[in-house]
Amino acid sequence: MQPMFRYTHRDTPIHRLHPLVKMVYVALTLVLVMYPITAGDMPVLLTWLGFSAVLWAVARIELQRFASLFKILLGTFIFLVLIQGFTYRGGHTPLIVLGHLKLWEADLGVMTREGTWFGLVLCVRILAATSALPLFVMTTRASAIVTAMNRLRVPQTASFMFVSALSFTSLLFEMWNSIVEAQKLRAFDIDSMNVFKRAFRAYVPIITPLILLLFRKGNDFQIAMETKGFGAPVKPTEIETLTTRPADVVWLGLIVSVFVVCTVIKFAG
């Protein structure tokens, strides 16, 4: 499986955008999804998600990557829709009736239309929240991220950890897949197990080798980093020169405008 967080080199307006403008976009996304949520927030969230989709398209990021993100979250979405469908307090229009089990204001045996809708709103909120960071890291060079973080006074170690973690995820994916395959060869098939089996017994043969391998690789990473001067008591060089262009101001204006529109819709509605 391809990890989501991978920089893809392209020459698009989003790739050329000042990293701090992209960081503003990520920050505003987080603010927007942190607003107290109601069932009526769907238009706000869809507007922001639509805006994000436009940014993804302008950045020419393959739809497949978005599909991967959706696939990862699909289980959570189904869970949210079901749990909200059956437990939403304000639900009164039955969609599916399995029986009747009253608990406070909710009837746990009935899946309601309002509850299902609220579950869908939560799903869109999660999707809006999780689509911002990948866009940032997939369109911004590592050195630009580090320089931008330095501008925000983030310590060098922390910005290096962030950047190397992005790279490390692919190694983690590879190791996970190799371990799952190795155990399948001994008839231990985690993919065919249900959630409960996985939780209770399946992860030991997978997690144990993963942790042992990570310890070992961690040592090697330390050697590779420290023999390249990491931790030297000098101010590291900023590789990337960040310059502000008129286009950055335009994009910043656009992002803030969309955010303001969403906020107005949210609180005016």
Binding site: K228, G229, I239
Partner: peptide, 17 residues
């Protein structure tokens, strides 16, 4: 450990300023 080859090559000397 860096996301691009250019960043990888710059990592060592950048650490030394």
């Amino acid at each position: 450990f860096m996301p691009t080859l250019r960043a990888e090559l710059a990592f060592g000397p950048a650490n030394l300023g």
